[in-house]
Simulated assay, not measured.
Amino acid sequence: MEKPNIDELTGARADLLCYLVATVAASYALTQEWRVDHVVESCRIWLKRNLVTMNWLDRILTGQLALKIARRDLKGAGIAVRQSDVQVLFTGEMGLNHASTVVQKMMKLCREATGTAS
C-alpha cells in the first residue's frame, strides 16, 4: 500500500510544522544551538510515524520555516521554551502533547504559517 502525500491529510502539514518547531525549540533550550540535524531527523521520524510522504523540497522548506518560527516568531507570540518546559511539549511516545498550552500556542502559529484553519 502506498503512503498518502502529506497534503492528502487535513491539518497534517501544520502538525508536522508544529512538531518541528517544538523539536527545534526544545533542542535549543537544552543545547543553546540551532541544530538543523535535529530538524531533519525529526521530520523523518514524524513522516514515518504518521505514514505519509513529502517530497524533498517541501521537507527542506518546512524545516527552514520551523527554524524561522522557533528563532523569531515564538518570542513575539509570548512563547518562551525553557529547559524546564521541554518535557511537557511531548508525550511519552515523543508525539506532540496537545494538552500543553505552549504546544497549543505553537500550533496556532503553525496553522497561520501554513494557511490552515484552526
Rank of each mutant, 00 (worst) to 15 (best):
M1I: 12
M1P: 11
E2T: 15
P4Y: 02
P4C: 03
P4V: 01
P4S: 01
N5G: 09
N5L: 07
N5A: 09
E8H: 10
E8N: 10
L9G: 05
G11E: 03
A12P: 00
A12E: 00
A12H: 01
A12F: 00
R13S: 04
R13I: 04
L16E: 03
L20R: 01
V21F: 00
V21P: 00
V21C: 01
V21A: 01
T23E: 07
T23C: 11
V24N: 00
V24C: 06
A25Y: 08
A26L: 06
A26C: 08
S27F: 13
S27G: 10
Y28P: 02
Y28A: 06
L30S: 11
T31V: 02
T31Y: 07
E33L: 11
W34E: 01
W34D: 04
W34G: 02
R35M: 07
R35Y: 09
R35F: 09
V36N: 08
D37W: 12
H38Y: 15
V39I: 04
E41L: 14
C43T: 12
C43A: 10
R44T: 14
R44G: 12
R44I: 14
W46T: 03
W46L: 06
L47G: 00
L47F: 07
L47C: 05
R49K: 08
N50E: 03
T53W: 06
T53E: 05
M54A: 04
N55K: 02
W56H: 15
W56Q: 15
L57R: 12
L61Y: 14
T62G: 07
G63Q: 04
Q64T: 13
Q64S: 14
L67H: 04
L67W: 05
I69L: 06
A70C: 07
A70P: 00
D73S: 12
L74Q: 00
G76N: 10
G76A: 07
A77G: 07
A77T: 02
I79A: 01
A80W: 13
V81H: 01
R82N: 11
R82Y: 12
Q83E: 13
Q87C: 14
Q87G: 13
T91V: 05
T91R: 04
G92T: 09
M94H: 09
M94E: 11
N97L: 01
H98G: 10
H98T: 10
H98F: 11
S100V: 03
S100G: 02
Q104R: 05
M106H: 04
M106K: 01
M107V: 11
M107E: 09
L109N: 04
C110P: 07
C110Y: 09
C110H: 10
R111P: 07
E112S: 15
E112D: 15
T114P: 03
G115E: 05
T116G: 13
A117Q: 14
A117V: 15
S118Q: 15
S118C: 14
